[in-house]
């Protein structure tokens, strides 16, 4: 069984999912950040032999999340794509086909730094494009600097390092909450991470396999650096 964690944040109750997404039940909205679709393609165009697959798989993972609950609206907190697609990029068809499979779902994208030049494509895929959104008492942005009040954002791909007892350290994605900024882990399978160092008032939730676990709570290891 997977284990999720409910977090109270700016008067909202958010469910942190081990699939690296947030389920906001009151709004029936699913939130993701930093999907970076088509990144493998960009690498291949540069002559770097990355297999075809991550893009397809990320879309299947979204399907998995949609199948488990009644989602009205999917909100992407920036960097839906890795780079503006080219006309002959095959993966754009994969996205279009995926979109056609969810006609009743609203998909809104807060534009991130990688989404420049995608307006045309978002329109074609029937997705809304926004500089920022507001939902409940929360600003939904890509980079935290763009928020006015408490916000949810992406962009930094937060991870933490945990010692596994031996000589190795594991890098695991985290949800990182300061008192007024909640940062989502990167959703995309082909994305790296940036190690965050939580402050004293922060809450950090690590994704360990199929579980979300709060760091620094009794019983869990808390050696994050």
């Amino acid at each position: 069984m997977t284990r999720t964690v409910d977090v109270d944040f700016a008067e909202a109750t958010l469910t942190l999912l081990p699939e690296r997404a947030i389920w906001w039940e009151a709004e029936r909205s699913l939130l993701l950040a930093d999907v970076h679709l088509g990144k493998d393609q960009v690498f291949r165009r540069h002559g770097i032999a990355i297999p075809d697959g991550p893009t397809e798989r990320d879309l299947r993972r979204i399907d998995g999340l949609l199948a488990q609950r009644q989602v009205d609206r999917l909100i992407v907190l920036g960097d839906l794509v890795h780079a503006g697609p080219r006309a002959d990029d095959r993966w754009t068809h994969t996205v279009a086909t995926w979109r056609q499979g969810h006609p009743d779902l609203a998909v809104d994208v807060v534009l991130g730094n990688h989404d420049r030049g995608t307006a045309r494509w978002l329109e074609r895929w029937d997705m809304g494009a926004y500089e920022a959104l507001r939902l409940g008492k929360l600003d939904l942005v890509h980079e935290r600097e763009d928020a006015v009040g408490p916000c949810l954002c992406g962009h930094v791909h937060p991870v933490t390092k945990l010692r596994d007892g031996g000589h190795t350290a594991l890098r695991l994605p985290v949800f990182h909450f300061t008192p007024d900024i909640g940062t989502l882990p990167a959703f995309g399978a082909f994305t790296g991470g940036h190690v965050v160092r939580p402050g004293r008032k922060d809450r950090t939730f690590v994704i360990a396999g199929e579980h979300v676990v709060q760091l620094g709570i009794a019983g869990s290891t808390s050696d994050s650096d």
Binding site: F43, H46, I50, P51, G53, H82, A83, F190, G192
Partner: peptide
């Protein structure tokens, strides 16, 4: 021009292991 194609070797290892 090259920043878009930077990824850690560990990440590439994971992608290869899964997809190839």
């Amino acid at each position: 021009s090259t920043r878009q194609v930077q990824a850690s070797s560990a990440l590439i290892f994971d992608v290869l292991q899964r997809f190839d």
